[in-house]
């Protein structure tokens, strides 16, 4: 609105207040290219999805919600995202603490693992988990070596098989904000806690955790929201019995040939995910921590 006012303002006032109008022009040129891009790349697909969802005979949205496989997958995806979030936040916090307090070799080892995970693709990591979990894969080889098991393990493409892999995939997103927060923590506050007689538990509970809580929540929200859109890892490791919403959508389009239902489901998934993110963002100021 300020931009339109600035444009509509007579030339004389514009000349009298060069600073203010310079600032408006500046903002216009900086903000408009990204906004136009967002409009094209977000609104375009959304409109196309709505059109496609309405293209079938019946109400595709109602139909999706009546489909048992879809409703099941919604609950499964939510549960999966919740478990992955809790696990990554808890383990990720330990991981970040260990990097901050560990001896040098531990630090190097942990940072190395984190970087491998950040720098190699999700595809490669998922393939690694596959090879690990195949009936005669690497895990079986280790167990056999230790004389713990002699028959091939029936682990691949089960619910239990996909959780460790998904936790590993998402862990960096939980570690990084906590790590930044722990490293940047005010040393004098820790010294104060020590001097005033607090033991490790009181220091952690009353001084450290309240200070890094915000970072844990930011990481957790991001992991949760990204887990809702998980596709490749559950597909390869969880198998057909563990289809996430993304998997079901893919099935509607490529197997069932119901483009309208697939579009409706996509809208539900995008809408739900973005809504969850926005609510969490307003509640916990997640974006402010990241941006």
């Amino acid at each position: 609105m300020t931009m339109e006012q600035a444009l509509a303002a007579p030339a004389t006032t514009r000349r009298r207040r060069p600073m203010a109008d310079g600032a408006a022009a500046e903002r216009r040129w900086l903000l408009w290219p990204p906004l136009v891009f967002f409009l094209l790349t977000v609104a375009g697909p959304v409109v196309a999805l709505v059109q496609q969802a309405l293209s079938g005979e019946g109400n595709a949205f109602a139909e999706s919600l009546r489909m048992e496989v879809f409703v099941d997958s919604v609950w499964r995806t939510l549960l999966l995202a919740a478990v992955v979030t809790v696990a990554t936040v808890v383990v990720g916090t330990c991981y970040a603490f260990a990097i901050a307090v560990g001896p040098v070799w531990v630090k190097a080892l942990l940072m190395g693992g984190l970087l491998i995970s950040l720098w190699t693709s999700v595809m490669v990591r998922t393939i690694g988990w596959m090879l690990l979990e195949l009936p005669t894969g690497a895990l079986f080889w280790v167990l056999e070596l230790l004389h713990l098991r002699s028959e091939p393990i029936d682990f691949y493409q089960s619910t239990a098989a996909m959780y460790p892999a998904m936790i590993a995939v998402m862990l960096p997103f939980a570690v990084l904000p906590v790590l930044a927060s722990v490293i940047g923590f005010d040393r004098e506050q820790l010294k104060a806690a020590t001097v005033f007689g607090a033991g490790p538990l009181l220091t952690l509970g009353a001084v450290v955790l309240p200070a890094i809580r915000q970072a844990m929540i930011s990481g957790g929200v991001l992991v949760f929201v990204m887990s809702l859109g998980f596709y490749v890892t559950p597909l390869l490791l969880g198998g057909p019995a563990n289809m996430t919403m993304s998997g079901i959508i893919n099935g509607q389009l490529n197997t069932a040939n119901r483009a309208d239902v697939g579009a409706a489901m996509s809208l539900l998934l995008v809408g739900g995910t973005v809504a969850i993110y926005l609510v969490a963002d307003r509640l916990f100021k997640v974006s402010e921590r990241w941006g």
Binding site: P45, V46, L267, L269, T273, W290
Partner: peptide
């Protein structure tokens, strides 16, 4: 930041419809 939260499959379906 919100594009990080967009589920890729649903977004891909949208782009495909476009």
């Amino acid at each position: 930041i919100v594009p990080m939260a967009i589920p890729p499959v649903a977004y891909a379906v949208g782009l495909y419809s476009v």
